[in-house]
Amino acid sequence: MEQPVLTEATDPFCLDQADAVAQLTGAPWGRYAVIGDSLSAGTGDPTPGYRDQGWSDRLAGILREVRPDLEYLNLSEIGATTARTLEAQAARMVAFAPDLLHVPCGANDIVRRKPDFDEIERTLRQMYDLAKGTGALLTTFTLGRAYVVPVFPDWPERIAAVNEIVRGLASEYGALVVDMWDHPVNDRDNLLSEDRIHFSTSGQAVMAAEMVKKLAGSLGRTTSA
């Protein structure tokens, strides 16, 4: 079946700016930091009908309307593994003293011939220990099933394994998880960028909306599904 052509204004999974701001009105966060890789940065190709902006910058813009004095620091680096994030970004993250902090989900840790999932969990745990030590509310997300690397026949199993690690650590450390693994947006033909890895800006808009809903839920707000 041919999928309908959506725009940001008609996409049922998006929030317009006013609705997003309303959901987070009164939110306490004034120092928002993002660490990790290109997924944290919100890298993605433009989608016609959608604002050309990644999810993390979108969320910062919404939070800045709630708190005009918001300080925002995005340290994300394309290609960064969790180990690289710890090495190159952790010190600046701690020095920034965030009260809201997004941590990555290990996507680049599984792009190797034979991932060591025990080592991945240990390294992610080090990151969570540092992140939790800032006192910030932590957020993260799982990888969507639309993300496929054909050269690795076991890629779905790799995604499932790292997603389970992320869910487990998030539960242990009290992080909010936006679970994108089976989100309906995965079924869209135009979800992925040309590289077949990153969400296009249509997906970035959905990610931002899901983050807003998750944060609103942490404030005790009732949000639409």
Rank of each mutant, 00 (worst) to 15 (best):
D116K: 13
P12C: 07
N163A: 06
T81K: 06
Q53S: 05
A225R: 11
M93N: 11
V177R: 12
G26N: 07
F96P: 14
N74T: 07
R158W: 09
L75F: 03
V212A: 03
E210W: 11
L124T: 02
R122H: 15
N108E: 14
V148W: 00
R196S: 08
S200L: 03
T123F: 10
E87T: 10
P12M: 11
V103Y: 04
L73M: 09
T81R: 04
R113Q: 10
G203Q: 09
E2V: 11
E77V: 12
M127Q: 02
Q23L: 10
A216P: 13
L137D: 00
D179R: 00
P104K: 08
D11T: 01
P153V: 06
E65F: 05
E121Y: 00
S200A: 01
S200R: 05
D52E: 09
T140R: 02
E172H: 15
D109Q: 05
L130S: 01
S193N: 09
V177W: 12
A205P: 08
G54S: 01
I165Q: 05
V151E: 00
F152N: 11
N163T: 13
L63C: 07
L169E: 14
R113N: 09
Q53D: 04
V66A: 01
E77Y: 06
N74M: 02
P46Y: 05
K214G: 05
R188S: 08
D129T: 13
V177N: 07
V212T: 14
L124I: 01
V212Y: 08
V148N: 03
P98H: 13
A20H: 14
D179T: 04
S218F: 08
T139K: 00
R125G: 02
V21A: 03
Y173A: 01
R84V: 09
Q53A: 06
R122S: 15
S40K: 06
P153R: 07
G220L: 08
R92T: 04
S218D: 07
E172C: 10
L215H: 02
W181Q: 14
T123L: 12
V66S: 00
A60K: 05
L75H: 03
L73N: 09
S224H: 12
K213N: 13
A136R: 12
Q204Y: 06
L63K: 11
A20Y: 15
G220S: 04
N190C: 01
P153H: 11
A107I: 14
E77N: 04
L176E: 01
G168T: 15
L15K: 10
D45E: 00
R31G: 13
F117W: 11
H183E: 04
A60Q: 05
L75N: 00
H102E: 08
I110D: 09
T222E: 15
P153E: 08
D116V: 12
I78V: 07
A208T: 09
A136M: 14
A107G: 06
R67F: 03
L86C: 05
G36Y: 06
R158Y: 13
P115V: 08
W181C: 09
R31D: 11
G144D: 07
A216D: 11
A216V: 12
G44P: 12
P115Q: 11
A131M: 15
I35A: 03
A41I: 06
D45I: 05
W55A: 03
P46G: 08
